[in-house]
Nucleic acid binder design. Structure first.
Lengths: 338, 338
DNA sequence: GCCATCAATGAGAACGTTCTCATTAAGAAC
DNA sequence: GTTCTTAATGAGAACGTTCTCATTGATGGC
C-alpha cells in the first residue's frame, strides 16, 4: 500500500505549519487568512490528502462511532428500528456498528467489551441480561431499546405495548368477542414485567371479564409456537372465538394452525397480532395487528443518544413509550355465535 | 470521564517496560517468562486495564473494521445477507459498519469517502454506480455483492439468477404452461446485464417457444408495480396462464392483483417469485419461489474479503454464482386449459 | 577464562492528528 | 516614536499502542 499523504506533506507543499493545515481542514476559517487557506486547499487537492479519522480519534478520544446491539437483524421487527437509528446517527456524522445478540447473554457481554476496546462514543441496546452496572461500567452514553424499568439512569425508548394490547382486545370486545385467548412469548430475564400478559389481565379486570387460564398460552416467539398454540386452543372443549398473539410471527403461525384445522379466519376465529411486519399484510386474510412504530423508535433512540454524546448530562434517564396503532385488516370479524 | 489506565500504568505497577506489557497482552507467551507474564496480568487485572484499539489501529494501520454497503436493510432480501457477512466477519475479530445506499449514487460516494477516512480494512458492496476505478481508488480489498462483470479485479459473490429463472420457467413448462409472462424490474446503471430478462429469452429459444412482447412487463421493484403489472397482464385479450415475477415483492403484488380481479391462484393463473423472503411463505396460497441463498452469499463474500485482508493478492477476481433452488408451494398448478 | 549464542527485556521512535501556548507582525491609540 | 491589542501562524507535546533494534544476563562450547 502506497504511503498516503499526511498533513505534514500538505504543510510542506503549502509552506505553512501543520497546525495551520489542521485549522483549514477543520473549517476554522475565521482564524486563517483567505490566501493561506487557498494555498492549503490547493496542496490538499494536489496531493489527494484525506484526513485520517483514526489519528484524530486517538487525539480527541472521540471515534464518531456507535454500536447498536439488537437480538437479530433477520427478525422482521428489527431492520426498521436499525434503519431509524442508522439514518439519524449518520445525519450527524456518526457511523453505526450493528451487532446481533441472538438473545444470548455471552454474546451481549462480548459486544460490551468490543464497545469499550474500540472507544465507541455511544451504545443503543435492547438488553438481554446486561445489568445496570454492566452498562454504567462502559462509561459512555447508553440508550435502552424497550422499557427502561431496570435502567433508571439511562434514556429508553419503547412502544406502549400495554396500551397496544388494550387496543387490540378492545377491538375484539367491540366486535362482540368474550372468549379471547392470549398467545404470548416467554419473558427474557430482564423483562420480568410481562407487559402483554399484564395488560391482558388488566383488560379483563377493567371489563369485569372472567379469565380462563386455559386461554393463556406461553411459548417462545416463533411461528411454530403460534401454530402449536392455536392447535391447543382450538382443541379445547370451549375454544376461544378470538386470539390475540403477542407478535405477528406468532399470529402467522396461529393463522396457519387454524387453517390447517379447517377453521376459517375470521369467520370461525379472529386473530390479532402485534408489530406490523411486512408479512402481516401479505397473509390471506391479511392480519389485523397493532402497529409498533419501529423506525420512529430507532430515530428517537438515536436522538437521545446524540444529545447525550453532545454533552447532555441529565442524571435521571428519559423514558418514552411511543404510541401503537390498530391496523384493522382481514383477520377479525364478529364471533359466529352472536 | 475518568482517565483510563494505559499500558504505561500497567508497566509501572508490574515493574516492567511497556514493550513487555504489549507482548503479554498480545499473547506472545513464547518470549516472555512465566513470572513476568504473571506480574503483568496481575497489574492488568488490578488496574482494570483494557487495550485501546484506536491507538493500536493508528500504529498498525489496521482497524479490524469493514463496511457493508447494501441498498436498504429494511428490504426483506438484505437482512439475511447482512447477517451472513456479520457472522463470518465477527468470527475473525472484525466489526461491520452497515450502510444503506438507497440505490442513490451520491450516498454511495459518501460511503466510499467514509471508508477511506476511517481507514476501514475492507468493503463489501452491492454497487449502484461506483465504477471499477472508484473502488480501486480506496486501496483496500473490495468484494462485490452480485455479479462482478464490471469489476474483473475484485472478488464477487452472486446468485445464479439465470439458472434460477430457467428452473422457475422449467417448472411452469413441466406443469403445462406455454403462455408465461415475465414481470421484471428496471436494471440499475451497472447491471446492464438484464439477467432475468435474458434468461427468459434464452429459455424460450431453448424450448422453441414464441416470445410475446406483451407478456414482458418492466417496472420498478415494488409490490405496487407487481399489482399493476398483473392487472395489465390479465386484461390482455390472451392473458398468460402463468407469471414469473423477478422477485417476491413483485410476486406478492401480482398475487394481490390477481385476487383483486377474482382470478384464482393457482387455478386460473400460476405465479412464481424469486428470493424466498419470509413473506413468500405466509401468503395464501404460499408462493412458489426461487430460493436465493442470502445468508450463504453474505458468508461467502466475507470469506473472500477475509482472505484478501489476510494477504491474498490474486490479481484476477474470483467470481462465484451460488446456486438457487426451487421451492414449490401453493401458487403453481397446471393451466386450466389443458 | 573467553567467546558465541540465545532468551528475555528495555528504550525510544513511529503512527497522524489536535490542541495549547508562544511568537510575530500589523494596526491603532497616545 | 512607543506601547498595547489583535489576528495569524508556528512549535511541539500529547494521545496509547506497536515495533525495531539494542542491551543484558545466562548458558554452553572450546
Amino acid at each position: 500500500m502506497a504511503k498516503r499523504p499526511t498533513i505534514i506533506d500538505v504543510a510542506k507543499l503549502a509552506g505553512v505549519s501543520k497546525a495551520t493545515v489542521g485549522r483549514v481542514i477543520n473549517g476554522q476559517n475565521d482564524i486563517v487568512s483567505e490566501d493561506t487557506r487557498s494555498r492549503v486547499m490547493h496542496a490538499v487537492k494536489q496531493l489527494g490528502y484525506e484526513r485520517n479519522a483514526v489519528a484524530g480519534s486517538l487525539r480527541t478520544d472521540r471515534t464518531f462511532m456507535i454500536a447498536l446491539a439488537i437480538p437479530d437483524i433477520t427478525n422482521p421487527f428489527w431492520p426498521e428500528v436499525a434503519r431509524g437509528v442508522q439514518d439519524a446517527i449518520e445525519a450527524q456524522g456518526y457511523a453505526t456498528v450493528t451487532v446481533n445478540t441472538d438473545w444470548q447473554p455471552e454474546r451481549e457481554q462480548k459486544y460490551l467489551t468490543m464497545v469499550r476496546r474500540n472507544r465507541f462514543d455511544g451504545l443503543i441496546v435492547n438488553p438481554i441480561e446486561a445489568s445496570r452496572t454492566d452498562l454504567l461500567n462502559i462509561h459512555i452514553p447508553v440508550v435502552i431499546l424497550g422499557s427502561g424499568g431496570y435502567y433508571p439512569d439511562m434514556d429508553s425508548v419503547g412502544s406502549d405495548t400495554a396500551a397496544g394490547v388494550d387496543t387490540a382486545l378492545n377491538h375484539l370486545l367491540e366486535l362482540g368477542h368474550r372468549r379471547i385467548a392470549l398467545i404470548t412469548g416467554r419473558p427474557s430475564r430482564n423483562n420480568r414485567v410481562r407487559s402483554r400478559h399484564d395488560a391482558y389481565v388488566a383488560f379483563h379486570a377493567k371489563h369485569n371479564l372472567q379469565i380462563n387460564q386455559d386461554l393463556i398460552i406461553e411459548k417462545d416467539f416463533s411461528e411454530h409456537s403460534g401454530y402449536e398454540a392455536m392447535h391447543q386452543l382450538l382443541h379445547l372443549d370451549n375454544p376461544p372465538t378470538a386470539v390475540f398473539a403477542a407478535n405477528d410471527i406468532l399470529a402467522i403461525g396461529a393463522l396457519k394452525g387454524a387453517q390447517a384445522l379447517d377453521w376459517h379466519v375470521p369467520e370461525d376465529v379472529s386473530i390479532v397480532g402485534m408489530d406490523d411486519i411486512y408479512a402481516a399484510a401479505t397473509t390471506s386474510p391479511s392480519l389485523t395487528t397493532i402497529i409498533k412504530p419501529k423506525y420512529e423508535t430507532g430515530v428517537k433512540a438515536a436522538e437521545y443518544l446524540l444529545a447525550r454524546m453532545s454533552g447532555d448530562n441529565i442524571d435521571q434517564g428519559r423514558h418514552i413509550l411511543l404510541p401503537c396503532e390498530l391496523a384493522v385488516r382481514g383477520s377479525t370479524a364478529p364471533p359466529r355465535d352472536i
